[in-house]
Amino acid sequence: MIPLVAVVSLRGRESRTLRIWVPLILLWLVIVPLAALFSPLIFVGCLACRIDPFGAFSVGWQILRALNDTEVEIEHRSAGISICVF
């Protein structure tokens, strides 16, 4: 399952937390038709760079699927940012 939502939390110096829910599914809905449109160009580009286009597609898909449950949190002083992908 590809990630559908990303939650970005921003914490400012006033300890106020801004939580943004990013619906990644909308992003995929935009990217997929574009990728399909440009797939011949991507295919030729892969061949020109001596990269197996099918292998690249397969690995790209695996990376997309593996992004689920990725979490990055950085806090410095009282400010911080957190990104969680579901």
């Binding site: 760079c49 001596r50 990269i51 197996d52 292998g55 690249a56 397969s58 690995v59 695996q62 990376i63 699927r65 593996a66 992004l67 689920n68 449950d69 990725t70 979490e71 990055v72 949190e73 950085i74 806090e75 410095h76 002083r77 009282s78 911080g80």
Partner: peptide, 27 residues
């Protein structure tokens, strides 16, 4: 003056697997 800094990263093993496969594609 810098104050404390905390970093917490959680990477799924599946992502590592895919990353190694990606390295295998590099010319």
């Amino acid at each position: 003056h810098e104050g404390p800094t905390k970093v917490n990263v959680r990477v799924p093993m599946q992502l590592l697997r895919a990353g190694v496969k990606l390295a295998g594609l590099i010319p």
